[in-house]
């Protein structure tokens, strides 16, 4: 795949407040550098993350998405991350079936102590998405649906 050096991917990270958000704070306090492409949306828990929001993000032009929360058994709310994991497993195969490029979604655990892991996660994801190029296929579909008024007809 041709790597597009001019291309700056837009990546949104959906993270939980207690582990990954705090981990990303630690990346900051440790002054570790990473790419500017990723912007964090804070949730109380990965269990809160509605995966339809991921699709909305792609529809509106995101090139990649990161979902990250506490490691298994470390959830602040006991089991939210297990629900998220189960949802991800089910969602991934459905997306795959639908033809969505699941390489665009990076699912990970980053704890509050893993500042460097967060930096690596961001940098690797940015590099991967950069290699994949803009998510034009999804854009085409989204634009088509928008223009053709698919919803109204249905």
């Amino acid at each position: 795949m041709s790597s597009n050096t001019d291309f700056e991917p837009k990546i949104i990270a959906f993270v939980c407040n207690w582990c990954t958000y705090a981990g990303a704070d630690l990346t900051g306090t440790s002054r570790l550098k990473y790419a500017t492409n990723v912007k964090i949306v804070r949730f109380p828990c990965t269990g809160r993350i509605d995966f339809l929001l991921l699709l909305k993000s792609f529809a509106q032009g995101a090139d990649g998405v990161i979902v990250s929360g506490c490691h298994p058994n470390d959830c602040h709310y006991t089991s939210g991350n297990f629900h998220a994991r189960r949802r991800w497993i089910a969602f991934r195969s459905i997306l795959d079936l639908m033809g969505v490029d699941i390489r665009r979604i990076q699912y990970s655990w980053v704890s509050a102590a893993e500042g460097s892991k967060w930096a690596d996660l961001v940098n690797n994801t940015v590099a991967d998405i950069r290699a994949l190029g803009p998510y034009a296929e999804y854009q085409k579909v989204a634009d088509y649906l928008e223009k053709e008024g698919y919803n109204e007809e249905a």
Binding site: E8, A24, D25, T27, G28, K33, Y34, T36, A119
Partner: peptide
């Protein structure tokens, strides 16, 4: 701070 100025270099993008 933690999610921007401390983790990026001084630049337009930042």
């Amino acid at each position: 701070r933690e999610h921007c100025s401390w983790v990026h270099e001084k630049s337009e993008e930042t």
